[in-house]
Amino acid sequence: MSSLQALIFDVDGTLADTERDGHRVAFNQAFEHAGLDWNWSVELYGKLLAVTGGKERMAYYLEKFNTSFPTDDKTPQMIKELHQSKTDFYTKLLSTGAIPLRPGVKRLIHEARKQGLRIAISTTTTPANVTALLEHALGEGSTDWFEVIAAGDIVPAKKPAADIYVWALEQLKLKPEDCLAFEDSLNGVKSSLGANLKTIITINGYTKSDDFTGASLVLDQMGEPDNAFTTISGDNFGASYINLDLLKKIHAA
């Protein structure tokens, strides 16, 4: 049995609850800025989350939900420009401190660093979004704490494909059995399990009804010593919050 050597984190919904009050809001700001009458409600955005990647999500919206909007060979460029605008609005939103890290995340990252455990990111969001969240929520220079940041279009096939995790493992020069993954969604757990990674899930409002079959542990949050998590499925080994002791037990199980 190999020892636990690295933790690989998804970002949106896992490190911070960014989707509903972050990305969705920024998309709507970008649409308004471009003079479009598109508006993604909380309910509609939940449906659009079936597709990972912002550019892909806009294409899906036009294909399935706004079919009357005229599209042509210039549409991909329009989507690309909208996505860049959305990223700008999103990073400005993060700079206000409006989107904090979820309970337990900051503590766990600091604990991992203190004990010499390697940490990495595996996400479909853009590198700029990752940097903005980390720098504003964890502090300046915190991006450098993560040995590998696998983000955005670094692989062509996004989650639920396993490619982004496979790439991260290659960069870390580690095997799946050396690591644990943290996810929050069906597409995420399909991706991590597809790369043969044991996975811990912290659900959010959009993903609470997803099927997490195969995950080692499914929780409502990572928890804190004074703010216990609720276990939805899996063995928590008597713990009330995620720390390295619990993670080592999950890894060894």
Rank of each mutant, 00 (worst) to 15 (best):
E19K: 02
P70N: 05
T75Y: 12
V42L: 07
A195H: 07
S216G: 05
A157S: 14
Y241Q: 00
H83V: 02
D163G: 11
G234Y: 10
T131L: 06
F27R: 08
Y61T: 13
G205Q: 12
M1F: 12
A181N: 03
P160C: 12
G205N: 13
T123V: 04
L172Y: 10
K55F: 00
H83A: 09
A253L: 06
K198A: 12
W167P: 01
F27P: 09
L49V: 03
P176D: 11
L108E: 01
R24N: 05
N66V: 08
A120H: 03
M58Y: 08
V218G: 09
W38P: 00
T202F: 07
L193I: 12
N243D: 15
S240N: 07
D72P: 06
Y60C: 07
L94A: 02
E56G: 06
I109D: 06
S191G: 12
S209A: 15
D37G: 11
L62V: 08
L82K: 07
M1E: 13
L197V: 09
E81N: 14
L44C: 02
L15K: 08
A150N: 07
W40T: 08
K198I: 04
W38M: 11
Q77P: 00
L219K: 08
Y61P: 01
T126N: 12
N129F: 01
N204S: 13
I232T: 01
K74V: 02
I201C: 06
I79F: 04
D88C: 01
N196L: 07
L138Q: 10
Q77N: 13
S2R: 15
L117R: 03
A157K: 15
H136I: 05
T67L: 03
